[in-house]
Design a protein around this nucleic acid. Structure first.
Length: 784
DNA sequence: GAGTTTGAAACT
DNA sequence: CAGTTTCAAACTC
């Protein structure tokens, strides 16, 4: 990939002030309408941190804030795309031993260790300020070093590092000088990463010494910038999320393998979003392309707008954002497909193999612990380059920042993780009580697993598809990049058992979940999102975070099997069966504590019972046809069916009707007949009022309820809500099939040909009925 | 911070 | 598939 423009690299490595002051430069710099503000912030940021070179993660992850991002874009544009191509083509094949050599030459007590030892905990601001002061004096030297000989690199490393990391360039002039080199830095950085996984990169070594020099300079720069990123991340938030979507990991892994030889990575289809992220880390040409011409802006847009919830972090609510459709699972779809196909082939020994693998890894972990100290530097450096994706969300600005590095590709890149992990597990830090992110949501979880090894769905991190953090308080954690294989295997096992185990528990759109198709008519539950499988709460009444629905801030649905649902985000419509059963057995719940029927009525049980008819009304308000049929059901049931079949029929029909009409939002019904409008206008506005709904029922329809209640005496209700078995469609099928023979026979009445709702009460009469039935309400409750 | 409660996940 | 156990988060004190 030799570039004819390669000889221009040295010249561009340190753009001259003349270029910066050129009209073209000014023009480019002013392209962005918001540049001034952002540039100010950018400069300010750098003046604060005194970073000569912006952290490379800026290019590699959504961690960058949009403003900064935009600023970069403008300045990078100014640099010209050819420069970045040069940087990539020239520098990416550089062998890694240069780094290693530097690492060895670097004093263990030097700044490198200080900042690499614990990328998370480095916060020695005092030292930083001191070094910063020192570094200012070295500013000219550093600039010189960018064109200095390669032999001086090691010697200057600490200086450069100090300058780069602690920031010696507080002035915009300097940072502008360095800005055009970002892509090259980045390219080198990725080359470095590649070299950790691809050994043979030497064929395309740069031929010119200048390139080598430049490369080494950028090696320094990139390393420093990495540390900058780490420090920056730490300074901004403790809740850095080492985010790695397993599927993405897998994809990335595959991608890396695919591109070992070609150095020309092309992300698999379906990883478009992630591709724009991964390409930065994995493949120089990808980087080059990303920042070149057309794709650049797109990539920048992606990064700048990529809230973790949307692009990286799975199923996360960044600052209470709604979970976007681009969940981890979404991102990982391709890999999930692979996983799933593999998982289907898992034999019965897979579990045991996994256990054996875990044991082996434990031993390995111990071994690593014994040797970690001597390798910390290298390994951590590797980690800093080829570690994971960090993502964070600032609580106040919901600013997505992520110091992104490469997802580990193989065991070699995991060495550092071993070291870190061992250190973590050996240190008291491991036992620290888990602390919540300020904005802790699903994506900002930190587990506290003790016995699950963070390899079960008990572990929130694992369940969310992310690796555990150092900040997690888990014990014996295997949900780490260094156990990637184990993690993936475990994931496969779990997915083999339940293909949707890692799917987002909450679907944004009700229609996403088959369980919610039936629930579209549930006006008590927000239709914007639903828990996919529903909760099974018994005691919490869906009012505590024990309830997954409540925790996800979504209403319960018919898919839930919760009892006494009182979810403030939306109650479940209890099965008519269940209500009838409750009515029949008031002692089932709190009614047992009531002494009189009056107490029962006052307590709202009457409402609960009457709200049974919400379901019928629900049918009616979905579509005119459904309304008609619902009435038919009710009427025919009351007139022609005996006992409990009426209720079951109504329920079954309701479900069928809802299914057939699913997708109609409550507020978007198809044109309705006058009678329907009447019905809706009178009923629906008050539909939340159980009393009213119940009150409008005419005698015969109320009689249905009586029959329904009576049915519970003779029909042993097999409530499908009792146990999580299958989606509602299936449940409804079960409902019908599991019902008594009488119920089955009664199903014959539920036919399209059933007569429509008989006397569609005129408005005046209906109104009167409503008014008049108020007094009957209580009577109705005692109609048993 | 320890202990309890709760419900999902895992197991039998 | 139903019942039981395990587990970790949520909650309470």
């Amino acid at each position: 990939m030799d570039s004819p423009e390669s000889n221009r690299i040295p010249a561009k490595s340190s753009p001259s002030p003349a270029v910066q002051g050129s009209p073209f430069f000014n023009y480019i710099s002013n392209l962005s309408p918001i540049r001034s503000a952002k540039a100010a912030r950018y400069v300010h940021s750098f003046s604060q941190t005194n970073f000569a070179i912006p952290p490379p993660p800026v290019f590699t992850s959504p961690r960058i804030d949009p403003q900064r991002e935009t600023s970069f874009r403008g300045e990078i544009d100014a640099a010209g795309s050819d420069l970045y191509r040069q940087g990539d083509t020239h520098l990416k094949p550089e062998p890694i031993h240069c780094f290693q050599k530097e690492d060895q030459s670097c004093s263990p007590s030097g700044c490198i260790d200080e900042y690499l030892a614990d990328l998370v905990d480095m916060e020695d601001t005092t030292k930083s300020s001191d070094l910063c002061a020192q570094s200012r004096n070295d500013k000219p030297m550093i600039l010189e070093r960018f064109t200095s000989h390669k032999d001086t690199i090691n010697k200057d490393y600490n200086h450069v590092d100090s300058h780069m990391f602690l920031g010696s360039f507080s002035g915009s002039q300097h940072h502008e000088k360095f800005l055009p080199q970002f892509p090259r830095i980045f390219g080198l950085r990725t080359a470095y990463v590649q070299d950790n996984k691809v050994v043979d990169c030497s064929q395309s070594l740069p031929q010119s010494l200048q390139s080598i020099e430049t490369y080494n300079d950028f090696v320094d720069s990139s390393r420093s910038a990495l540390r900058v990123a780490a420090k920056d991340a730490d300074q901004h938030q403790r809740g850095i999320r080492r985010h790695l979507q397993f599927g993405v990991t897998m994809s990335c892994k595959d991608t890396g393998n695919e591109n070992h030889d070609t150095n020309n990575l092309s992300l698999p289809e379906g990883l478009t979003h992630f591709g724009s992220l991964v390409s930065y880390h994995t493949e120089p040409s990808g980087i080059s392309n990303s920042w070149g011409a057309g794709s650049r802006a797109q990539t920048v847009t992606f990064l700048s707008s990529s809230c973790p919830s949307q692009s990286v972090i799975p199923a996360e609510n960044c600052g209470n954002h709604n979970i976007s459709a681009c969940t981890p699972s979404d991102l990982a779809l391709p890999s999930i497909g692979v996983i799933r196909s593999d998982s289907m082939g898992l034999d019965s020994n897979a579990s045991q193999k996994l256990v054996d693998k875990l044991h082996a890894r434990e031993e390995k972990q111990i071994a690593v612990r014994n040797h970690s100290s001597s390798k910390d530097l290298d390994s951590i450096l590797v980690s800093s380059v080829a570690g994971e994706i960090y993502a964070q969300v600032e609580d106040d600005q919901q600013e997505t920042q992520a110091a992104t590095t490469v997802v580990p590709y193989d065991g070699r890149t995991l060495t550092s993780q071993n070291a870190n992990m061992v250190e973590d597990q050996a240190s008291p830090k491991r036992n620290r009580k888990r602390t919540k992110c300020i904005n802790e949501s699903e994506g900002c979880k930190r587990c506290n697993c003790k016995r699950s090894k963070c390899l079960k769905l008990y572990c929130e991190c694992f369940a969310a598809g992310v690796y555990c953090l150092d900040s997690c308080a888990c014990n014996n954690c295997f949900n780490r990049p260094d156990y990637e294989d184990t993690v993936l295997d475990t994931r496969q096992l779990i997915e083999a058992r339940n293909p949707l185990a890692f799917a987002p528990k909450v679907v944004k759109h009700a229609m996403d979940s088959p369980a919610n198709i039936v629930e579209e008519g549930n006006w008590t539950t927000p239709s914007s999102a639903r828990h996919k499988r529903g909760c099974n709460c018994k005691k919490s009444k869906c009012l505590k975070k024990y309830c997954e629905c409540y925790q996800a801030r979504v209403g319960c649905s018919n898919g839930c099997r919760c009892e006494g649902c009182n979810n403030s985000f939306g109650k479940k419509i209890e099965s008519i069966y269940r209500r009838a059963e409750k009515w029949k057995n008031p002692s089932h719940e709190q009614l047992g504590t009531m002494e009189t029927q009056d107490d029962f009525i006052k307590s709202g049980r009457a409402h609960q019972l009457s709200s049974t008819w919400e379901e019928l009304a629900d049918m009616s308000h979905l579509t005119p046809l459904s309304h008609c049929h619902s009435g038919a059901v009710a009427t025919s049931a009351s007139l022609n069916i005996g006992d409990g079949s009426k209720v079951s029929q109504a329920h079954a029909y309701q479900e069928r009707t809802l299914q057939s009409s699913a997708g109609y939002p409550h507020s978007h019904h198809s044109p309705v007949s006058p009678t329907t409008n009447l019905y809706r206008s009178k009923v629906l506005p008050d539909i939340s009022s159980d009393n009213l709904l119940y009150d409008i029922l005419e005698d015969d329809t109320r009689k249905i309820l009586e029959n329904a209640l009576a049915a519970t005496k003779s029909v042993k209700v097999s409530s499908p809500n009792q146990k999580r078995v299958s989606p509602p469609q299936i449940r409804s099928q079960e409902l019908r099939s599991s019902s008594s023979q009488g119920l089955r026979s009664g199903r014959k009445f539920i036919l399209p040909a059933v007569p429509s709702f008989p006397p569609l009460t005129p408005y005046s009469k209906l109104k009167d009925g409503i008014q008049g039935s108020h007094g009957d309400s209580k009577d109705g409750t005692s109609c048993q």
